[in-house]
């Protein structure tokens, strides 16, 4: 299984993602330029990653312009054929704008850019400490969508307190139901605001990000 990391103008976590996958997780990584559109070297076992950053300067809405780049047309096709796609932070925003994932990421409820460690968990993982760094990460969908995500088990992670309790205090940005990450119905497209690639190295003092990649069965 190999990874393709898409580089948009304004991506700034693309090299972190490459370093984490290649050097910490020993995976083959190919960098993909947003203006290209050839994904013929990738099959359904492979994973395309949309990294964090500020694609196209976050102009109009986060991810709104990246969604129409040539590479994204191929990524959408790849995902619809069952290929795995992971979007982190701005990548999650791009996936929502592309309709590969439902919902939207709105401005944080406190109107601030938040850069800090957060705790995330789900019923089958331990509580993980993963950093976030975003201004627009408040997951929103109408009540019907939220109900659907809950009943289909599409919620990958929720923000929690240090002990793994889903509380208001553990929710940094006002996301509905403390949602930090979701997957699509088919289970091949994943989006999350926290940055697992920033927590995969002993030298950085946190390797909880490895458990995120493991949970998503990407490594």
């Amino acid at each position: 299984m190999k990874f393709g990391v898409v580089v948009f103008p304004g991506s700034n976590c693309d090299r972190d993602m490459q370093d984490a996958l290649q050097n910490d997780l020993n995976k083959e990584v190919v960098m993909l330029w947003h203006k290209d559109k050839d994904l013929s070297a990738f099959n359904a076992e492979d994973c395309i990653v949309l990294p964090g950053g500020f694609s196209y300067g976050d102009y109009l809405r986060c991810g709104a312009i990246a969604r129409f780049s040539p590479m994204m047309q191929s990524v959408i096709e790849f995902a619809n054929k069952g290929g795995k796609v992971l979007g982190v932070c701005n990548g999650f925003q791009i996936l929502c704008e592309s309709h590969l994932l439902p919902g939207a990421l709105l401005a944080n409820s406190n109107q601030k850019f938040i850069c800090q460690n957060t705790y995330i968990a789900n019923p089958s993982t331990a509580t993980l400490k993963i950093p976030i760094a975003h201004g627009e990460g408040r997951f929103y969908g109408d009540s019907k969508l939220i109900e659907e995500l809950e009943s289909n088990g599409q919620i990958l992670f929720r923000y929690t307190d240090e002990k793994g309790n889903v509380t208001e205090n553990g929710n940094p940005n006002g996301s509905l139901n403390n949602i930090a990450g979701i997957k699509n119905k088919n289970g091949n497209v994943f989006g999350m605001m926290p940055h697992p690639e920033r927590a995969t190295s002993f030298i950085l003092g946190n390797t909880d990000g490895v458990k995120v990649f493991e949970y998503l069965q990407l490594v």
């Binding site: 109009l60 809405r61 709104a64 312009i65 704008e97 939207a104 109408d142």
Partner: peptide, 8 residues
Amino acid sequence: KILANPVM
């Protein structure tokens, strides 16, 4: 298609 996102 692009200027507004009907979700929000």
